[in-house]
Simulated assay, not measured.
Amino acid sequence: MAGFYVVTKNDRERKISLRRVAANTGGAVYLSDAAEAALPAPTGTMPFADLTTWAAAVKDTAVYQVPYDADKGPSVITVVGQTQYSADGNTWANTIPDGVMVAGSPVEFFIRTNPAGLTRADDGSYQYNFLMQTVGSGGISLINISRNLAKVAGTTPLDQVGMTFSVNCTVIDISGNSVTGTALTKVWE
């Protein structure tokens, strides 16, 4: 009972659909008896499957959907973890240490989203958008350096004392899903 199948893939649903066709019209794959036996039950039939007036090559008979491993295909983001601090770009912490955020003194540090906090590891398709809250960020600039890495630098005026500095990251996957992480905050001393 081996035959030809047209194969389509849906990364959003993480499913591969196999549609049996009567003949190879180009682009179809051939499945042996053993491969056909391994398919799940068909999810439906094409509406023209029983018509005999259609050419055999376009008369579909059954559609099968096979879910594939969630770790394959493009990464989909649903959870973003903590935005992290680093003085040198190598050692990371979930908080800004005391003595760093002193109003009137220059600051320079790096931020990123904790890679371990992402629902699925970045396969290179994620976009990282870092953003500082306007209150408490006077005199400070944020510059994206590379994927999941930004630099915060500048000197804030003395009137920022007691205000809260806050920076966060929104991660967007290839499908356009957008999720914001946990903000990194510190009160100016």
Rank of each mutant, 00 (worst) to 15 (best):
N144C: 05
V171F: 15
C169D: 02
K186R: 07
I145K: 12
A23G: 11
V161Y: 07
I96N: 00
Q65T: 12
A70C: 05
A103R: 07
V76I: 15
G89C: 04
N90K: 07
F110M: 06
A35K: 00
K72P: 02
V66E: 08
K15R: 14
V100Q: 10
T53I: 14
V80W: 13
I172P: 00
T182H: 06
A93W: 07
S32H: 08
G44V: 00
A37H: 05
A93P: 01
V7K: 15
T91M: 07
A87T: 05
L39I: 07
T95C: 02
A93M: 05
A153H: 01
L184C: 06
T185C: 03
R112K: 07
G73Q: 11
Y5F: 14
Q65M: 06
A70G: 08
V63F: 05
P42F: 13
P47H: 13
I111H: 04
I174E: 13
I174C: 04
P97N: 00
T155I: 13
F109R: 02
V102F: 05
Q65G: 06
S178G: 04
T113M: 08
E108A: 10
T8W: 09
S32G: 14
R147P: 09
T61S: 11
S32D: 14
A62I: 04
Q160A: 04
L118H: 05
A41Y: 03
M101T: 00
S146L: 03
S86R: 01
T53P: 00
A38I: 11
T185D: 01
Q65R: 14
N24P: 08
V7P: 02
F165E: 02
G27Y: 07
V6I: 06
T134H: 04
